[in-house]
């Protein structure tokens, strides 16, 4: 399983690019909230910054977001985990804010069970 610092430079660059795509003004996803890719990037970023809080290997499969206040969204997300039981689906409600640096995870998506 890849640790928080195991993403290579190339991978990090891809994530940054995806994050830019998802977070750029006027891009698809902003009007109704963050895209799946943006949430994935926000999770990867939060995982790197807050070591140990978020589990590794979580893959966002679906999201249903609504704006709670300007720039602040809450989303119900469906995700899978690389270390989870085969085919197991997980659910969480996350808080995600649009900030100058991009979409930022403010709550949720930690897992820690199987």
């Amino acid at each position: 399983m890849r640790g928080p610092h195991a993403i290579g430079r190339a991978g990090a660059a891809v994530l940054v690019f995806i994050g830019w795509l998802a977070g750029s003004p006027g891009r698809a996803g902003e009007a109704s909230g963050p895209s799946l890719a943006a949430i994935q990037v926000a999770y990867e970023s939060a995982k790197s910054e807050a070591g140990g809080v978020h589990d590794d290997g979580l893959v966002i499969r679906a999201a249903d977001c609504q704006q709670d206040r300007p720039g602040a969204y809450s989303c119900q997300i469906t995700f899978t985990a690389s270390g989870g039981a085969a085919g197991r689906l997980y659910f969480d409600v996350i808080g995600i804010d649009r900030r100058p640096a991009g979409w930022t995870l403010v709550s949720g998506l930690c897992k820690r069970h199987d």
Partner: peptide, 21 residues
Amino acid sequence: LNRANGPPPAGSYLHGLDLRY
């Protein structure tokens, strides 16, 4: 959760259980 009640407080990290709207 009832979505009408608002989102979980910022900084909530509910490990170990599924959370749904």
